[in-house]
């Protein structure tokens, strides 16, 4: 199979024997990027925690957030992560049409999520919330909310573009299954970050 031969030539430039991590360098690079990106989000969320503790008071989340909408966003993201996992599994198994179908389903999930987030932001801005002010008595809440969810939303947007490019290249047959897997790692990471944002920002 030509794909198999191609894989071998891609792995060849290592030149230092077996990779100690048992994965190719592209996948390892993605893992390293994800570890560093984790630190970024950990910094943002820790800053939020420290500020909330220092203030000693916070908004009543349940009067402000639409917990139904946020739960729906969480549901959508979990579903899109599952479809992404199926796309990666299909790529490994060589089931080409299924890869494309599930990649596009994942993109659809991402777009739904972004739509829900845009609705949430529009609603807050309509109620008078700005980056440094809001009508709920805790100005610091605004910056925390907009910066953390905005940063995550930016990651989702980048992910949607990344997945669309991956789908296009997969259809053309110019990428290996490993590339789909690496795109999947990024997408699951976006879901992983949302787990903590959902818990720390919305529920606690």
């Amino acid at each position: 199979m030509s794909a198999g031969e191609h894989r071998t030539t891609l792995a060849a430039p290592w030149g230092g024997g077996q990779s100690p991590f048992g994965v190719g360098w592209p996948k390892f690079m993605m893992w390293l990027f994800l570890i560093s990106d984790t630190l970024t989000f950990a910094g943002l969320l820790t800053g939020y925690g420290a500020m909330r503790l220092a203030l000693g008071r916070w908004v009543h989340q349940f009067e402000i957030f639409n917990i139904g909408l946020v739960s729906l966003m969480t549901f959508i993201l979990i579903c899109s992560s599952a479809t992404m996992a199926v796309a990666v599994g299909a790529a490994r198994a060589g089931d080409r049409p299924r890869v494309l179908r599930y990649l596009l389903l994942t993109v659809l999930g991402g777009l739904f999520f972004l739509g829900a987030q845009a609705y949430e932001w529009t609603h807050f801005i309509g109620e008078g919330a700005r980056l440094f002010t809001n009508p709920w008595g805790v100005p610091q809440f605004s910056a925390t909310f907009f910066i953390i969810t905005g940063f995550h939303g930016g990651h989702v947007t980048a992910g949607v573009i990344y997945l669309l490019i991956t789908a296009l290249r997969w259809r053309r047959g110019t990428i290996q299954p490993e590339s789909v897997e690496i795109a999947g790692l990024y997408w699951h990471f976006v879901d992983l970050v949302w787990v903590f944002i959902f818990t720390l920002l919305y529920l606690i």
């Binding site: 991590f21 994965v23 390892f28 996992a85 990666v88 897997e181 999947g184 790692l185 699951h188 992983l192």
Partner: peptide, 15 residues
């Protein structure tokens, strides 16, 4: 998510 979606459960222990 890390173990099954990101396949960490199937990777080498070093990773």
């Amino acid at each position: 998510i890390m173990a099954y979606f990101m396949h960490l459960a199937y990777e080498r222990l070093a990773l």
